[in-house]
C-alpha cells in the first residue's frame, strides 16, 4: 500500500540538516534543563532494571552503612542500659510468709490470779 511516490513526497517534509542541528541543540538544552527530583531519579534507576540496579543499590547502601561511622549513629541514639538490681532469690528453707487474712493463732494468755 505504501507507494514510492508517496514515500518520496513525505521525505520532502523532513527538516534540512541545518534545521535538524538547530533543533537538536534546543532539545538538548531543554533536556538538560528539565526539572529533576532526586527521588524520581532513583525511582527511574530502579524502574529501568529493577533486579540489577536494586542489587547494586542495596550493596552500596550496605557498604556505606558498614564501612563508615554511619552505623554508630543509631547506636548512639539508643538510651544507655541501666544496671538492673535484681532481688535476692528467696531461700527454699525459709517458710513461706503467712497470708495476711489468715487468723493468727496465738496461745491464750495465762489467767491472772
Amino acid at each position: 500500500m505504501r507507494e514510492p511516490i508517496i514515500e518520496r513526497a513525505f521525505e520532502t517534509l523532513e527538516p534540512s540538516p541545518n534545521t535538524r542541528a538547530a533543533l537538536q541543540a534546543r532539545v538538548e538544552a531543554a533536556y538538560e534543563a528539565r526539572p529533576r527530583s532526586l527521588w524520581l531519579e532513583w525511582l527511574n534507576v530502579l524502574r529501568g532494571r529493577p533486579l540489577v540496579n536494586g542489587a547494586w543499590a542495596t550493596a552500596a547502601a550496605l557498604v556505606l552503612f558498614v564501612a563508615t561511622p554511619l552505623s554508630a549513629l543509631p547506636l548512639a541514639l539508643l538510651p544507655p542500659r541501666a544496671a538492673q538490681v535484681q532481688a535476692r532469690p528467696s531461700s527454699p528453707l525459709k517458710p513461706a510468709p503467712r497470708p495476711l487474712s489468715a487468723p493468727r493463732r496465738t496461745a491464750p494468755l495465762p489467767a491472772r490470779r
Partner: peptide, 21 residues
C-alpha cells in the same frame, strides 16, 4: 531514563525525521 544524555541524543537523532513528518 536514568539520565544518559548520549542515549537521549541518539533517540532524538533516530526519530526526529519521523516526528517532523
Amino acid at each position: 531514563r536514568v539520565g544518559n544524555a548520549q542515549a537521549a541524543r541518539r533517540l532524538y537523532a533516530l526519530h526526529v525525521q519521523r516526528v517532523f513528518r
